[in-house]
Design a protein around this nucleic acid. Structure first.
Lengths: 211, 211, 211, 211
DNA sequence: AATGAATGAGCCTTCATTCAT
DNA sequence: GATGAATGAAGGCTCATTCAT
């Protein structure tokens, strides 16, 4: 345990430990002492580097998000919209299925979902908004509509919520439902299903005007 | 207000209060004192009647479970399958939008999801299975297929996950996404969207065999 | 250390200890642990009985005030106003000179004076106001004026501030200034001086209108 | 902004900051970090330059003392004694009303009063004695008496204690008592009141021998 | 049977101080 | 000489739990 480091070193160790512990235990159950212990740092370190537990939590969210989120695919305008949606869904599903940093993010997300701390509110929209816009554009092209009308928003929700199944259902339950282990191949088949299901859905909605 | 009650009375009031509080706050954040206060009971009552907080939590789960499992609508075999799906989705959405027992159950479930206590595994399947079967049958009819092949299971997941949006996204976020308050009318429009989106999806999947 | 008391017993012991400790140390330096220790109570007792340290402080103020403040003399309307003032001043000076509860009050007062906690604000006026009114009436009669004009308020301040010398100067300094120990007899002579000094002052102010 | 200063520069800045902070907050509530921050110095500076917080406190006292002892007005022997008293009181009141060094000193003094550190005993007399002598002389002339008899000492206390009201009552309370904000004009009227009140008092005491 | 007084363990935070550089 | 990273000690508060009554 080196007595004197760069300062950024210790800070980073604490942040990493915080990502782990918050993901494992949730905000309430996570103990500052535990985080510091894992980081090999003094209990007062959290206050020294981050101010308090809440600020550390927020930064842990950002860090986890950064670590787990794949960069947005550059969309080739020549690709047919159907294939753009396919690529988007596959990419999202692979992110969600990833056990590493993604697992941490998922747990953070679920905990926040179940028992909002209110600390993430602003952060959330900032993180989510850019990804959303890409999907909305794709859906608009597929539906053959302009503007942000309700039908487009509803379609976006349909797509996202299907992909999120990987997050909001426990692995065990998912495997129970499907009767087989969640292999990479299964993920791929699932993504393909969602793509086709959604393409049909979007086109059906887009064709006739929303009731 | 009888000064000396049956004992069972107090126990029940505490249990009801516990269902509320655990659902609202989660296990950790729920305070025994709060539960007792809402139940109009003494602080020592939880330990007296249930042993400790953990035991109360378990019983609250079972109680909530019992309260929320609404009876399934009897399906009229003469109704066209499309309308059966429509009815199923509208019923589910209304359940999910309901703040009452169903909401409580969902919150408990999400907490368990994020930080499993390992308690409710069995309960879960018992609750879910019967409802599932109904939906699977409807989907099979719409898709025009027999047997539990993967495509049917996938479609079921697509339908369910769309409906679950009401549960797995926070109200605030949902209203942010949609740009309007979550009124009963909006719920209805959303249910209708999911119905049409899913009908198209199911039929697309059912028609041509899985990719 | 009895395990089980009336409940009011322990509370009172803590309150008394708090009066002592707050007076000795001031709000900041007073330690809850110290108070509880002196009261023979658990550290959590302060929270249990009073909510928090601040609430205990307020109650300690009230308690100390109650213990130290002599009841208001009933004013005999037939007594000449000059003698009423004399009685008022002597009573006040004796209160201030009193070593017992008064000493505690004085220390609380001085600490609050030097470093306001802001906790006493409302309390202060409630405690002080009734006593003030009596003095104002006496001064009005002596000055031969009606109404609450500025001159009367100024005179009240002159009287009070002279009496407060006993509080706002340290014993040692006071004795140094006067060249003699602060005996009861000296207090009496001082009170008499203030009376005559003030009578002349009030009458001078009252006679010619305020510049 | 030189990156490497003389060292004495920093020391002085810390000392000045300490005077401010100790006066505002008192010894306990004053934070070393706050002092260093205001001085634009490193957190370790206090210990580096002064050893520890207590030593800094002592030096801050001495510094404040030095800064606040305004030179006495030279008394013109031809001025009538009444006007000398008037000038003395007005000067003192303006000092006391001043937010600057004098205010700092007063707050430090009151803190010491309430919870003596036993530090400033000697300082005090050195500061007070010369000013006292001037006032005693004036009073003697007005009273028409020689020698330091008790009546003169009492009168001095009466005058001083009235002036000190500005210090020993919180602004808020003072404004509450007077029903108006503490403007420079009010200070002047108050000084004039004290002058006239005291002139009458002194003459009354001086005329007939002490009761 | 049921209560409320009382507690101990533990958490987050503050803060003066230290020490390698 | 001067700094900033790091810490230990302690403080206020929370809360589930216990136990005499």
């Amino acid at each position: 345990m080196p007595y004197r480091e760069d300062g950024k070193e210790t800070r980073k160790r604490i942040l990493d430990a915080a990502c782990e512990v918050f993901a494992e235990k949730g905000y309430q159950s996570a103990k500052v002492a535990d985080i510091c212990h894992r980081a090999g740092a003094n209990i007062a370190s959290v206050n020294y580097y981050f101010g308090d537990k809440a600020a550390l939590y927020i930064e842990a969210w950002q860090e986890t998000f950064k670590k787990c989120s794949s960069p947005l695919l550059p969309v080739d305008p020549d690709t047919p919209p159907d294939d753009q949606l396919r690529a988007y869904i596959h990419s999202l599903m692979e992110d969600f299925a990833n056990e590493g940093a993604q697992g941490q993010f998922t747990r953070l997300y679920l905990t926040e979902l179940a028992h909002p701390t209110g600390l993430i509110h602003d952060l959330w929209h900032d993180l989510i908004q850019p990804k959303r816009r890409v999907l909305l554009d794709i859906i608009r092209k597929i539906a053959g509509r302009e503007g942000p009308d309700e039908a487009i928003l509803f379609c976006e929700m349909s797509v996202i919520s299907q992909c999120r199944t990987l997050l909001t259902v426990r692995r065990n339950d998912l495997e129970y439902l499907l009767g087989q282990p969640l292999s990479p191949d299964l993920i791929k088949r699932l993504a393909e299903h969602i793509t086709r299901f959604s393409l049909a859905g979007i086109k059906a909605i887009g064709g006739k005007d929303s009731a």
